[in-house]
Amino acid sequence: MSGALGDPKTSRWLKEISYDPLDALSKVDVPTLLVFGEKDVWIPVRTSVERARALDRKTLQVVSIEDADHAMMESLTPQQQIDPAMSKQFRPESAEYFVALGSWLTAGGFGRMH
């Protein structure tokens, strides 16, 4: 993030960090999967999960992956997670994440072969 957020009124990073997707999610009724990594250093996971589940949408599934971080990785330390030099190495590696994603896609009919 180049070390500083800059002017709060114009900072692109501040806008991204401050964005709350729950407002948009509350206005649509399409199949949605929210996946959180419990070791995420960027967002308040427990609060986010609680707020998402409180939407009480039948088409919304919320999954929390115990050993994963924001990028669904399990091997990075919190210091590595916030190191911009490491960002190109982020690749989902949590088996539980891939199972949750595959199960959701299949259950929704998105994984059918034609």
Rank of each mutant, 00 (worst) to 15 (best):
M1A: 13
M1Q: 11
S2M: 08
G3Y: 03
G3W: 04
G3E: 12
A4R: 13
L5Q: 07
G6Q: 10
G6D: 06
K9F: 00
K9H: 11
S11L: 01
R12L: 13
W13E: 15
W13Q: 14
W13R: 07
K15H: 10
E16Y: 13
E16Q: 07
I17T: 09
S18H: 11
S18Y: 04
S18C: 03
Y19S: 00
Y19F: 14
Y19A: 07
P21S: 05
L22I: 06
L22S: 02
D23H: 11
D23Q: 08
S26L: 02
S26V: 07
K27Y: 00
K27L: 12
V28P: 00
D29R: 09
V30S: 09
P31Q: 07
P31V: 02
T32M: 07
L33R: 09
L34F: 08
L34E: 11
V35E: 06
V35C: 10
V35A: 13
F36H: 07
F36L: 11
G37I: 05
G37D: 07
G37F: 01
K39Q: 14
K39Y: 06
D40K: 02
D40L: 05
V41P: 03
W42D: 10
P44N: 15
P44W: 01
T47Q: 15
S48N: 14
V49N: 04
E50S: 10
E50P: 03
R51Y: 06
A52L: 05
A52M: 07
R53L: 12
R53M: 08
R53I: 04
A54N: 13
L55C: 10
D56E: 14
D56R: 14
T59E: 11
L60H: 04
L60C: 04
Q61V: 14
V62Y: 00
V62F: 04
V62Q: 01
V63T: 06
V63S: 05
V63E: 15
V63P: 01
S64E: 10
I65A: 02
I65L: 14
E66Y: 07
D67G: 09
D69S: 09
H70Q: 11
M72Y: 09
M73S: 09
S75Q: 14
T77M: 03
T77K: 01
Q79V: 10
Q79C: 00
Q80P: 03
I82P: 04
I82S: 13
D83A: 11
D83G: 09
A85Y: 06
A85C: 02
A85W: 00
S87D: 06
S87F: 15
K88A: 14
K88C: 01
K88Y: 08
Q89P: 00
Q89H: 10
F90R: 14
R91L: 12
E93R: 13
E93F: 02
S94G: 06
E96I: 05
E96R: 15
Y97D: 05
F98P: 01
F98M: 09
V99A: 10
L101S: 04
G102P: 05
S103Y: 12
S103I: 04
W104C: 00
W104I: 00
W104F: 15
L105T: 02
A107M: 01
G108W: 02
G108A: 05
G109E: 08
F110A: 13
F110M: 13
F110I: 03
F110L: 15
G111V: 00
H114G: 14
